[in-house]
């Protein structure tokens, strides 16, 4: 009690010094926070810009695709294959046993509506664009797509069946906005 009332000069200067240290440290700390806040826009400006993000998703009207026909769409700079499959192609895809697949995946998982298959047209081996979209193009031994670069064969569900590719053709995120319009991305 008595002690707190009678401070020595030494105590006062120590207290003074620690108050000074606090404000100095607090000032520099605040400066560091400000510097960090400044750094964030410098880093974030490299993230995709608004115009790039605007093209991050596209809408496709699939009603114009005849049965048996395939179209190629550009999405995020890459080709998307949309195939309006015939009933025999759908049948083929669904009866394949999972044990025969290098990358087991059921067709019902890959196609939200069996008539339309939507896959990324990029071979999972080294990135070439497989053939099979245009009329007359080679479709490979399994009736899907054939990659001419190193001989990967994909079936009518876009799954790898033969050749060096390790994975099935990637299914991009997509949803049906209506019966005839899908939104990719």
């Amino acid at each position: 009690m008595a002690k707190s009332q009678s401070k020595t000069a030494a105590d006062a200067s120590v207290e003074h010094k620690s108050r000074r240290d606090f404000i100095v440290v607090a000032t520099y700390a605040m400066g560091a926070v400000g510097a960090g806040a400044f750094v964030w826009p410098l880093v974030d400006q490299m993230n995709p810009a608004a115009d790039t993000l605007a093209l991050a998703s596209i809408e496709v009207d699939v009603s114009k695709i005849a049965e048996g026909q395939s179209i190629t769409i550009k999405w995020r700079g890459k080709p998307i294959f949309i195939r309006h499959r015939t009933s025999s192609e759908i049948e083929e895809a669904s009866v394949v046993s999972q044990d025969d697949l290098r990358d087991p995946e059921g067709d019902e998982v890959r196609a939200q509506k069996p008539e339309y298959l939507v896959v990324l047209g990029v071979c999972t081996h080294l990135g070439c664009v497989p053939l099979g979209q245009k009329v007359g193009e080679v479709r490979g031994e399994y009736g899907g797509w054939f990659c001419p670069c190193h001989g990967s064969h994909y079936d009518s569900s876009g799954r790898i069946r033969k050749g060096p590719a390790p994975l099935n053709l990637e299914v991009p995120p997509y949803s049906f906005l209506s019966d005839q319009v899908i939104r990719i991305g």
Partner: peptide, 11 residues
Amino acid sequence: LSVMSFGAMRF
């Protein structure tokens, strides 16, 4: 920050 650094400087 200016006010704080002014105080720190005076100390």
